[in-house]
Design a protein around this nucleic acid. Sequence first.
DNA 1: ATTTTTGCACTGACCAGTCAGTTCAAAAAC
DNA 2: GTTTTTGAACTGACTGGTCAGTGCAAAAAT
Lengths: 209, 209
Amino acid sequence: MESSSARSGGSTRREATRQKLYEAAVTLIAEQGFSATTVDEIAERAGVAKGTVYYNFASKSVLFEELLRHGVGLLTASLQEAAERTARAGGSRVDALDAMVRAGLVFIDRYPAFTQLYVAELWRTNRAWQSTLMVVRQEAVAVVEQVLREGVAAGEFSDEIDVQLTAAALVGMVLVAALDWKSFQPERSLDDVHAALSRLLQGRVSGKG
Amino acid sequence: MESSSARSGGSTRREATRQKLYEAAVTLIAEQGFSATTVDEIAERAGVAKGTVYYNFASKSVLFEELLRHGVGLLTASLQEAAERTARAGGSRVDALDAMVRAGLVFIDRYPAFTQLYVAELWRTNRAWQSTLMVVRQEAVAVVEQVLREGVAAGEFSDEIDVQLTAAALVGMVLVAALDWKSFQPERSLDDVHAALSRLLQGRVSGKG
DNA sequence: ATTTTTGCACTGACCAGTCAGTTCAAAAAC
DNA sequence: GTTTTTGAACTGACTGGTCAGTGCAAAAAT
């Protein structure tokens, strides 16, 4: 459609502005929350006039909603890719789960502010973007559930596991461990954290190593 | 300390008012967030005049801060009690962990709104109550870490586990699974959810049941 | 008699959203 | 190839409303 360098009628400029606004909004909202973050702050950090925010987004809520959609979309794609890559390489479902744990850690490592904001909003009710959030969340969790189901069908996992709850628990494990990592031990390496979670995942905690 | 019926010199009346304000604030803030919740709303839901809020708390922030302290205090006591009860009954450290998982579920079952609000605030930075939250969080997590350390010392757990990270991961597992339970499958029983998490905890997921 | 609560008017700061006007690069006209 | 026009993108002062917190006299509870 259009190259970013020499462009004519299109709207590459607009896209760049929106990107700047996303980046400004994500850190501010992660730190302060949605309501405590002002549109003036977002505009200022993005290096843009307030009017530009409203030229590009219908409202503060819509800006946030599109930000959520964008971010969770990246995560879902990344999890999906990890699962497929493992399958193609002939790995087991446990390998796939492990690869997804790593993909999750990589994502949080790269976008800690987004993750923070996502967690803070996920279980709220009665908010404007509630339904959007529900949809994208389900798309992400479904990738994990799918692998669990395949594992049960293939006899790799017990058929007594509760797929939905187990998926939620696994996500929670990675999410909280990673946020703690970023908040309290940011100097540790991703491999290190991944190793600790792998150990837990494979039940090598109870029963001496 | 004091009975709610026949009390003398103290301030039982005041305490009752504060309790009403806690309860009103916790659900409103869980739903809407701190900044989006107004003092007028809190007062109205508590069935109290606005002036009363300020007679009992120095500010909106202080009210919230004391609410956080109060709530996490309950959780910590409950986890502590579960660990000690298991130890007294001669249970293993895995049993203690399992008992704490259940204690966590019972807490979230009883105070879902508080849990929601706690999660939403936990990883935020630059907020007034940040330091208070840090302290009480650490008190709660320390109970889990303590059991893990004892388990390592007793040879029940691998000495290669990362205590801090594993504790965070376990907390995350319970937290996210329970919030999903309350949000999306509230009809399920606590025992049911507990069973699913026990299975995961004891590594009976990989390896057919 | 003292503590606690009420009711309500008031203030001053803050903020989401608006809008009349500006900029500028590409397209059209000449 | 120079001038004119066009319109998307952007600007920032301004508006209307909201809300935390105050002040205080009267009432209720203990």
